[in-house]
Design a protein around this nucleic acid. Structure first.
Ligand code: SF4
Ligand code: SF4
Lengths: 164, 164
DNA sequence: CTGAAACGGGACCAATCCGGTCCCAATTGG
DNA sequence: CCAATTGGGACCGGATTGGTCCCGTTTCAG
């Protein structure tokens, strides 16, 4: 169905939340804030750290924070963090595995162009853009009825100068 | 890994072959021409017919042919034929299922923008463009060494006025 | 009229992938 | 030392995917 992984989706949601918070927060806080189960948040954060998108601090009063400004984190970066290089097919240049047909398949070379087009599209949208505006009304499917009180803004009073 | 389905990949390969042939040909011919196993070709073609991208003729001397000019078949069409509507996440407008978080997830609306960007990228490349040129050398990963004699051009002599 | 050739619509299965959870070691501040 | 956190997996059940096969239907050739 041409979906991104659910975990990747979560990653973006979590990053968006972190961008709006702009301060170090523990995994369980982020979980409570987004409604994503704690173990899942933990798993996703590990991947994000490994990819260098967020920085982590261990020990008590530790937690996670964006490793670089939200302006420089594109959707493509987040996807690559969770799923590895963007490669629509096995014969694309930066795919980590190869297709045995690659040598004589007339389609082979063409996928690179498609792949590039997609990656460019995904690079053109940054985390900052999404964090800034609260999703234009024309984009929303539902009128936003909070069913459980989750997703409260991260302590609006003491959240400091949101964004890095 | 952000891959399209393998079957979708095959679909594009088969369509490209059909575009270059420009005449009605049986599934087993297309299979022999592309190196894709016959049963798989059959399966893919069924999907393509259902989606209206190719027209089929039954009976002996039947086969498949493109339903419309290759110029009007975009990569997005082929993907949608095999995988259904392009919807990166469940909360995208034209997704057939929904996410329970959709109402209060701050990311919800934003995915539509990403989705649109991707779809636009996929709509900008047509089958005709790919059928015309033989994949610029700069795109190819391998120097094209045919390991099995497959993928011979569809009878260059009597192939008629290639393309619709 | 008969039969071969071809498509149509599935059922079917093995293998893989994915999501989700959990456990324990390592680190750090109090 | 203790509590709070992250790090790095293992683990598993369910869903998806790739691939094959079977049988009914349609159509043309002879
Ligand atoms: S070489 Fe051909 S079959 Fe193999 S991945 Fe590329 S397009 Fe698909
Ligand atoms: S609503 Fe939020 S969690 Fe659900 S699919 Fe959309 S972005 Fe992902």
């Amino acid at each position: 169905m041409f979906r991104i992984n659910k975990l990747t989706d979560y990653a973006v949601v979590l990053l968006l939340d972190m961008a709006r918070a702009g301060q170090v927060r523990a995994a369980h806080q982020i979980a409570a804030d987004t409604g994503v189960p704690v173990p899942t948040v933990a798993k996703v954060m590990k991947a994000l750290v490994r990819a260098g998108l967020v920085r982590s601090t261990r020990g008590s009063s530790g937690g996670y924070v964006l490793a670089r400004p939200a302006e420089s984190i594109a959707v493509a970066d987040m996807i690559e963090a969770l799923e590895g290089p963007i490669a629509l097919t096995a014969c694309v240049l930066d795919a980590d595995d190869t297709c045995e047909r690659e040598g004589f398949c007339p389609m082979s070379g063409h996928w690179n162009r498609v792949n590039t087009a997609v990656r460019k599209a995904l690079t053109g949208i940054t985390l900052a853009e999404m964090a800034a505006r609260p999703a234009p009304a024309s984009w929303r499917a539902q009128p936003a009825t909070d069913p459980g009180g989750v997703f409260r803004r991260p302590a609006p009073a003491d959240s400091g100068p949101a964004l890095a």
